[in-house]
Amino acid sequence: MTEYVGMVFVVASLIAIFSLTAPNFFQVETFRMTANQIPEVIILAVGMTYVLIVAGIDLSVGSVLALSSAVLGVCLVRYQLPLPVAVAASLGAGLACGAVNGSLTVAWRLPSFIVTLAMLQAARGLTHIVTGQQTQYFRPMIRELTSISVLGLSLPFLIAVAIAVLGQIVLCRTVFGRYMVAIGTNEEAARLSGIDPRRIKLVVFTLCGLLAAVAALAQSTRLGSATPTAGTGFELEVIAAVVIGGTSLMGGRGTVIRSVFGVIIIAILGRGLIQLGAADPTKQLITGCVIVAAVIVDHYRHSFRKAPLPTETPSPSL
């Protein structure tokens, strides 16, 4: 459990600070509403953690999210398709984007930074084309999805938690998860051990695209609409959350649960600053500082262990 001490400490400190400074912050309602607002970030963080572990990066998640929700909206509004069909089409769009990212990265050995940067543009362009640059309003068509909740927690939130738990289990308990870590740690050694890194990477990128579509569904059900500009800059928020969680940008190291902590830290910080009524520049300044501070505080979790670590931390929970 020591590996979560640093994260829990940061979350607790943030809650304590805002409870003392922001009016009406320390309420069940605050946490319930914050929880209901983060499922899409949690879901994206799972995919991003995987991609970073295999030493890749996916900059296109925000655009792919926008495209997937655009497809959902257009299917429901313009073509009047039944909900399951629209959902399937939306998931298909995300899956396809992820598959393109993965196959371009693998087949031509391109850096995923470049491939997904291209996808960031391309998917955003497609989104504008698909929606005709109009916000799609479809709340009445998805009423079945929005009405479900448990203890005030929405269905998307519950699904996001389930995905995160499943993501963590797959990462640390399955052959696939172990292969991801091996590839991220040393791709050539993995290849020479008889693993096919290309296949694993293709699956990881495709999965990340699919999860972006799931995130789109989570967001759309709450907002009841799909805006062509949705998810702009999301990739950086997600990468920040995952990195706060201690996932290495160099690959091979990271856990999903810690990424979720990263998401929670950023969400609570954002919520707190809003409730403080902070001005825009102040918000940006403080967010930047907290990202760095969180990483530093977490660094000291090592002092909870007995031996000093020689170099990098090994992946904690294999």
């Binding site: 509403m33 607002q37 709450r222 998810g231 954002g270 919520r271 809003i274 009524g277």
Partner: peptide, 13 residues
């Protein structure tokens, strides 16, 4: 989505 977060915080406050 940003407006959602901001308004959510505002009505709590």
């Amino acid at each position: 989505s940003e407006a959602e977060k901001v308004v959510s915080g505002m009505v709590s406050r």
